[in-house]
């Protein structure tokens, strides 16, 4: 199963995806974050919230693209979902394959360790003593994942727990499944 998924991700990346220059992408995102920092007067909490929201709005649309390109059926458990997110999702949109690891005992929480992060190339956080503690530079990724998973009825909490930009050893996203959303029922018609 896992191997097939990996193959699928690679095939789609090779054949079906429109690509842009990665430096253009990195620099564009960098300038967005830099601008946000200035706009919000270096209130990094707010910057995190804004990039998350931008990501969320991307995610709710990106899921359609994902489903169209992959034609995957619904995952039958959270473990499969984690594999698909890392080996297909991240692969086809960012050409990276984060490592899925650190499963909690009840299989409701796992970590995605980003061994490379195209968003963070050439990046240095501002040297004001605050940014390295408060700013999650790639927070947009959490938003994207959150938005996309919510559309397939997986209500997840997603946040960064470490980032090499802050001097940590790894860049790690923590994903926790809160609940599987139920099918909505039409409003009563009295």
């Amino acid at each position: 199963m896992s191997k097939q998924i990996k193959q699928l991700g690679e095939d789609i990346w090779k054949t079906k995806v429109d690509k842009v220059n990665s430096e253009l992408f990195t620099l564009t995102y960098g300038s967005i974050v830099a601008q946000l920092c200035r706009d919000f007067n270096y209130n990094y909490e707010e910057v995190n919230a804004q990039t998350f929201r931008m990501g969320y709005n991307i995610g709710v649309r990106l899921i359609d693209e994902f489903l169209q390109k992959t034609q995957l059926p619904r995952c039958s458990n959270f473990r499969d979902m984690a594999e698909v997110v890392s080996k297909v999702g991240f692969k086809i949109f960012l050409n990276i394959v984060p490592t899925v690891t650190n499963w909690s005992a009840d299989v409701s929480t796992f970590s995605l360790v980003l061994t490379e992060n195209p968003l963070a190339d050439f990046v240095e956080l501002p040297d004001d003593g605050k940014a390295t503690k408060e700013l999650w530079y790639s927070n947009i990724l959490c938003g994207v994942l959150r938005g996309a998973l919510e559309m397939v009825q997986l209500d997840c909490e997603i946040a960064f727990v470490s980032d090499v930009l802050r001097g940590d050893e790894t860049t790690e996203m923590r994903v926790r499944l809160v609940q599987v959303l139920k099918d909505e029922i039409p409003a009563g018609d009295q």
Partner: peptide, 10 residues
């Protein structure tokens, strides 16, 4: 958890 996945509509 499996059950939760199964009863979700899709």
């Amino acid at each position: 958890q499996e059950e939760e996945f199964y009863v979700s509509n899709l």
